[in-house]
Structures are given as C-alpha cells and as structure tokens.
C-alpha cells in the first residue's frame, strides 16, 4: 500500500468535486448552518446575554451539547453524497477499467477514493467547529464567567466520533455504490446510516444516553468495531475482478 498513489487518486477526485457545485454547496451550507446558525439561536435563547437563572443556564448548556452532536450526524451524512458520486461517477464514465490497468492496487484506489470523500466534510466540520466554539464562548463567557470550550466532550466528538462516523458513511457508500447504478439511489440508501446516529441523539434527549466522556468513548469503541467490519466488507467489494465483471 503506497499512500502516494492513494493521494494521487484522492486529489483527482477532489478536483472533480470542485466542479460539482451541488456537492460543494451541501458541505459548505451544513457547516455554516451548524457553526453560525446554531450559536445565533443560542444567542437569542440566552436573552442576548446579561443575567440568567441557574436553571436556564444548565438548560442552555444541554442545548449546546446537543448541538455538538449535530456534527456527528453531519459526519455520518456528508461523505455519503461524495463517496457515492466518486464511485458511481467512475462507473458511469466507465473509467475504472483504464484506472485498474495502471500499476495501482485495488486497495490504493479504495483508500484514495475514501480519502477524497472524507477530506471535504472533515475539513468543513473541523473549521466549522472552531467557529462554533468561538461563538459559543463569546456568547456564554459573560454568563459562565469562564470559557465553556475547549472541553473533553467536544474533543472526543471532534477527534474520535466525527472521523469514525465519517468513515462509517464512506464504507457504507462504497458497499452500496457497487450495487446500484445511479447516484441518487446510492445517496438515499447510504444516508440511512444517519438513522442509528439520530436514534442516539434522541436517546440523549430522553436521558437514556448522556453526552459525557465515558459514554462517548463507549460509543466510539462500538463505531470502531462496526467500521472494522464494514472495512473488510468494502475491501472485498472493491476487487478488480468483481468490479469489471459483477458490479452492475
């Protein structure tokens, strides 16, 4: 496995995505909404700063934490559109055959496509998160008397859960894209992966799951196991012999 080869493929995919406006905007819009829209909402809810009762303050912090979970849902949904396009696009252009004829291994191609699909959402989410944390700090500093961010919860979310959820989305998209022929179907099937994450979000709302470091670490471990399982499935899907003869 040579990373340099995977990177050549990823950067080719990235230059195609740049030309696909719908993909480009879906990533940017999501990030803007969560990073600027939600803090604005908090700003309005907090009564435009000033004083606030302790009860209201703890309620506000719960909402802020719930908003942080949106990033995980974003990570699980944004790569789907890109990964599906990146594989079905190659199928429609019939460009996999010449690509497979180059001295590049199947896993280098798969890795390149995964990096290409992971980078735009991850970068958008991480940049968005920095803006989000800055705005939230600016809004809540007066109320708390201290900086709410950084904290351990957001660190676990950004550094563990967000990448792991994005990887899940990419792997599911690879497996789905091998079996269907149009981008829209693949995106719809692939986006089903959001459902488990949405369920976790709802569990959080009804207090069956807490956004605390131990819970989040357990969740990360579960997703990691799922990712490893999906990884071996996507590798066995992405084999040259299968691609040219069995993929529909």
């Amino acid at each position: 496995m040579r990373l340099s080869k995977a990177w050549i493929i990823a950067s080719k995919d990235l230059s195609i995505f740049r030309k696909k406006k719908s993909i480009f905007y879906s990533v940017i819009l999501f990030s803007l909404f969560v990073s600027i829209g939600l803090p604005l909402l908090i700003y309005v809810l907090s009564g435009r700063s000033g004083s606030i009762s302790p009860d209201a303050l703890s309620g506000l912090l719960t909402v802020i934490n719930a908003f942080a979970f949106f990033y995980i849902i974003g990570a699980a949904s944004l790569p789907t559109a890109i990964a599906s396009y990146s594989i079905i696009g190659e199928k429609q252009e019939q460009s996999l055959e010449p690509l497979l004829a180059t001295p590049t291994t199947d896993s280098e191609i798969l890795l390149g496509k995964s990096i290409g699909a992971l980078l735009p959402p991850l970068v958008a989410i991480w940049i968005g998160a920095v803006i989000f944390m800055g705005l939230i700090d600016a809004i809540t500093f007066g109320l708390l008397g201290s900086l709410y961010y950084l904290n351990a919860v957001i660190a676990v979310i950004m550094l563990l859960l967000v990448p792991l959820a994005a990887i899940t989305a990419v792997e599911v998209s690879v497996i789905v894209s091998a079996r269907v022929n149009d981008v829209r179907t693949a995106q719809q099937l692939g986006s089903l992966i959001v459902i488990p994450f949405a369920i976790i979000y709802v569990l959080g709302e009804i207090n069956a799951f807490a956004l605390t470091v131990p819970y989040l670490l357990i969740l990360s471990a579960i997703i990691l196991v799922v990712d490893i399982g999906l990884f071996s499935l996507s590798v066995s899907t992405f084999r040259r012999d299968e691609i040219l003869t069995k993929w529909k």
């Binding site: 080719k12 252009e93 019939q94 004829a101």
Partner: peptide
C-alpha cells in the same frame, strides 16, 4: 501494468476534467 498501455472498448475519461488533467492524472500514477 507498468509496461503495458490499454485503450479499452469505452474511452473511460473524466468528463469534468480537462484533457491535460486527465493525462496528468495517469502520468502521475505511472
């Protein structure tokens, strides 16, 4: 695969990319 060149039945080029970028991508892979 290093020493062969293939012109497949279907051209299989990347429509969004320029002719130069298509070729440059392949040249990099070699």
């Amino acid at each position: 695969r290093k020493i062969i060149g293939l012109i497949p039945e279907n051209v299989g080029l990347y429509g969004e990319l320029s002719a130069y970028r298509n070729l440059d991508f392949y040249a990099r892979l070699y």
